[in-house]
Design a protein around this nucleic acid. Structure first.
Lengths: 174, 174
DNA sequence: GTACGACATGTCAACCTGAACATGTCATCA
DNA sequence: TGATGACATGTTCAGGTTGACATGTCGTAC
């Protein structure tokens, strides 16, 4: 049900079309909650049926712009404050680590080197984004501040994973 | 396809039944790759059909013990070395952070306090596990060493998330 | 001897997810 | 005018995942 509430949350910021929302998932949200356009269009229809959002206007190219309704806004707030956080984690890179003993030392070192580089690059991206937001390059609206918090999570998380991979290189399995 | 390979990897360590594997997912693997028993039993049947595992013996209570075959071992090694790592992340706690601006300061502080506590507790659990493994309480086999690496990931990841939540408390959204 | 709890395996329906396919519009530039 | 590329919305299907339900066995403690 998270996608449903994520869409409501995005629409709470400003009206948008399925395409717009699809874009925002690709650009930002996709890194913590992937969602392709088929899922988004489908969910928007359901949200519309449930009166949590409504069509504001139909633009060119069949573009439908949606706006969150009062009920929708209540619902996303209810989710944020009353629904238990789902702490489920699914991390293939760590799952693989359980089976590192099946790799040769050389394979493992190379693998971990690649992982460390990957996470380091990503961490830098988020860190740069966070710094840019701190410099005020995206304004100072509450929405931007929230994204700043999310960027901090992206940075810290990937920094931790990069650190982990480096640690693992230094603690080879014998 | 990760579950498939995770099962092969676990069976590479020692023969086990669906129940045994189900337990290991609940205890250890479930924190990075959740899987319920319906999924596990189903996947074991497919792996058996594909000759990647085979039934060693049938014990009491219809217990079927599986062993990985030579092909299965090759397959899990191929996965580890040749298949691209799936870096997909799906973290509801961070997804929520994008919508923090919809919460009141009080609600947000409470939420973040709970999150920080949750991650801190989990981090401590993994850290204790890692320390115990360093003291040799689980032996020194390659498999144990691999689990030590996974525990380090669990510790660092949750420490990072705890740190993030604390940071967010100190940087309130205005 | 029987009731209970842990062991052990399975089915089923519903839902979530992602890749591929399909359709059509609008602006722009040659 | 016609080609191209970005815009925009959808369907379909296969496969992964989960919760609920169902069934039966074995050891043991009363």
């Amino acid at each position: 049900m998270s996608l449903r509430h994520a869409l409501l949350g995005l629409l709470a910021e400003a009206p948008a079309s399925g395409w717009d929302l699809s874009r925002r998932f690709e650009d930002v949200l996709g890194s913590v909650w992937p969602a392709g356009h088929p899922q988004i269009y489908g969910e928007l229809r359901k949200l519309d049926e449930d009166k949590l959002i409504e069509v504001v206007s139909e633009g060119p190219r069949r573009r439908k712009e949606y706006r969150v309704t009062a009920e929708g806004l209540t619902e996303v707030r209810r989710w944020l404050t009353e629904v238990d956080v789902d702490h489920t984690l699914r991390l293939e890179p760590i799952l693989r680590s359980v089976f590192f003993w099946l790799m040769t030392p050389d394979q493992l070192t190379k693998h971990l080197r690649d992982e460390a580089d990957y996470f380091t690059t990503l961490a830098r991206t988020y860190r740069n984004l966070a710094d840019a937001k701190d410099r005020g390059e995206y304004g100072t609206s509450p929405q931007t501040q929230a994204l700043r918090v999310a960027a901090e999570a992206g940075a810290e998380l990937n920094e931790a994973l990069a650190h982990w991979a480096e640690w693992a290189i230094k603690h080879p399995i014998s």
